[in-house]
Lab assay of single mutants.
Amino acid sequence: KRLSEREFDPDIHCGVIDLDTKKPCTRSLTCKTHSLTQRRAVQGRRKRFDVLLAEHKNKTR
């Protein structure tokens, strides 16, 4: 699936709103397109961004 077609989940996706499409970014939490500050500011996550990021990195090892 293309990035734009993915169902957005704030707990596994970057989530920064794309200015062109007005939709949240569906790249992983480790997205290189958006800064850490931008990704931390995303609302609606179950846990703090840093906790989710650490969990994500542990899963992908």
Score class of each variant (00 low, 15 high):
L3I: 13
L3N: 10
S4F: 06
S4E: 15
E5I: 08
E5T: 14
E7I: 07
E7Q: 13
E7P: 10
F8P: 03
F8Q: 02
D9Q: 14
D9P: 02
D9E: 08
P10V: 09
P10Q: 05
D11V: 03
I12K: 11
I12P: 01
I12F: 13
H13E: 04
H13A: 04
C14Y: 00
C14F: 00
G15T: 01
G15E: 00
V16W: 03
V16H: 03
V16T: 06
I17F: 03
I17K: 10
I17S: 06
D18S: 08
D18Y: 05
D18R: 10
L19S: 13
L19E: 12
D20L: 06
D20A: 12
D20E: 12
D20W: 06
K22M: 13
K23Y: 04
C25E: 01
C25R: 00
T26D: 06
R27C: 12
R27Y: 11
S28R: 09
L29E: 00
L29N: 01
T30N: 07
T30V: 10
T30M: 08
K32A: 10
K32F: 05
T33A: 13
H34Q: 00
H34G: 00
T37F: 14
T37D: 14
R39T: 01
R40D: 04
A41W: 04
A41N: 04
A41F: 05
A41K: 11
A41C: 07
Q43R: 08
G44L: 03
R45D: 02
R46Y: 10
R46I: 06
K47I: 08
K47D: 14
K47Y: 07
K47Q: 14
K47V: 11
F49M: 05
D50T: 04
D50S: 06
V51L: 09
V51E: 15
V51K: 12
L53P: 01
A54K: 10
E55Y: 11
E55P: 03
H56T: 09
H56K: 11
H56Y: 10
H56E: 14
K57P: 04
K57G: 14
N58A: 14
N58G: 14
K59T: 12
T60C: 08
T60W: 08
T60L: 12
R61L: 15
R61C: 04
R61T: 15
